[in-house]
């Protein structure tokens, strides 16, 4: 009975693993084929010749480098902004006792609850008013601070002992010094989580960058990749090569920080 349970657990896990890995593997296989759409059939595709032509073509032509660097710039500044501003707001909400704290806190929670698509049109109008269409401002400024980030950091700071901040105060430190030299290092685990989520979210973000840019110079990778989706046909080879290259930084990020991601998610769950 026990062996049977074990076998069935393994079978389920293997199935789930295949379901997770297959799309990724299929993307890589397709990206290594010339005109895969013309090959027809699963086995024909697998056993036909492999080539890196799609990659080299995507890199050389097609403005891939522009999309890539745009994605990198936008994701970097949005991540940096979130780390700084969410930390400031989270700290203030966790430690400053003003009579407006509850009101501010509730409104931040409210913003988390409001679906993204509800603010899409007002935000678009606002960006148009500012004259920011086709600028980095449009891609960066609205996401510099997120309510979820504030929520995450505020909840984390509440669990930190206040005595450390008091000790710094007595040692002569001012509030800014305490925030960035004492509290920020203590928040490293949660800031790492926030950074990874923000970076990931931005890297993969499609809809808003798609709405807010219509020039190649300001397109990010997900938007750029859609140009392989023609009206009549889809250029699978190049699309998959582009998708593969755009997934690479995220995969690398995950490999290096997976321990931190898992630690961050369970932070505070156990007494240390």
């Amino acid at each position: 009975m026990k062996a049977l349970t074990k076998i069935s657990i393994y079978l389920i896990l293997i199935f789930v693993a295949i379901a997770m890995i297959f799309p990724m593997a299929w993307m890589i296989i397709l990206s290594l084929k010339e005109y895969p759409e013309s090959l027809g059939g699963f086995f024909n595709i697998i056993f036909s010749d492999y080539t890196i032509k799609n990659y080299s073509e995507a890199l050389v032509s097609d403005s891939f480098d522009i999309y890539f660097s745009n994605s990198l710039i936008v994701a970097f500044f949005v991540t940096l902004g979130n780390i700084i501003f969410c930390l400031m707001a989270g700290y203030a909400l966790a430690r400053r006792n003003t009579k407006f704290n509850t009101l501010i806190w509730l409104s931040i929670l409210g913003v988390i609850i409001i679906p993204h698509h509800v603010v899409m049109i007002p935000l678009y109008r606002l960006i148009v008013e500012f004259g920011w269409i086709n600028t980095y401002y449009a891609l960066i400024v609205p996401w510099l601070v997120t309510p979820f980030g504030i929520f995450l950091i505020r909840q984390y700071i509440i669990t930190l002992p206040r005595d450390i901040e008091d000790a710094a105060r007595i040692d002569g430190a001012g509030e800014w010094y305490i925030l960035f030299r004492v509290v920020a290092p203590l928040c490293k685990p949660i800031l790492t989580v926030l950074a990874i989520y923000t970076f990931l979210g931005n890297w993969n973000s499609f809809l808003m960058p798609f709405l807010l840019t219509n020039e190649i110079d300001y397109r990010t990778l997900p938007v750029g990749l859609t140009f392989y989706l023609g009206k009549q046909s889809i250029d699978w080879g190049h699309l998959m090569a582009g998708a593969g290259m755009s997934a690479l930084p995220i995969i690398i990020l995950f490999i290096f920080f997976q321990k931190k991601i898992i630690n961050g998610l369970t932070a505070g769950a156990l007494k240390e």
Binding site: P161, I164, A167, G172, A173
Partner: peptide, 20 residues
């Protein structure tokens, strides 16, 4: 007078060292 200007030294029960 703010704590930082009082020129005091304090030792806390839970040490309150800077862990980093």
């Amino acid at each position: 007078t703010l704590a930082k200007h009082r020129d005091i030294g304090m030792v806390f029960q839970n040490y309150a060292l800077y862990p980093h």
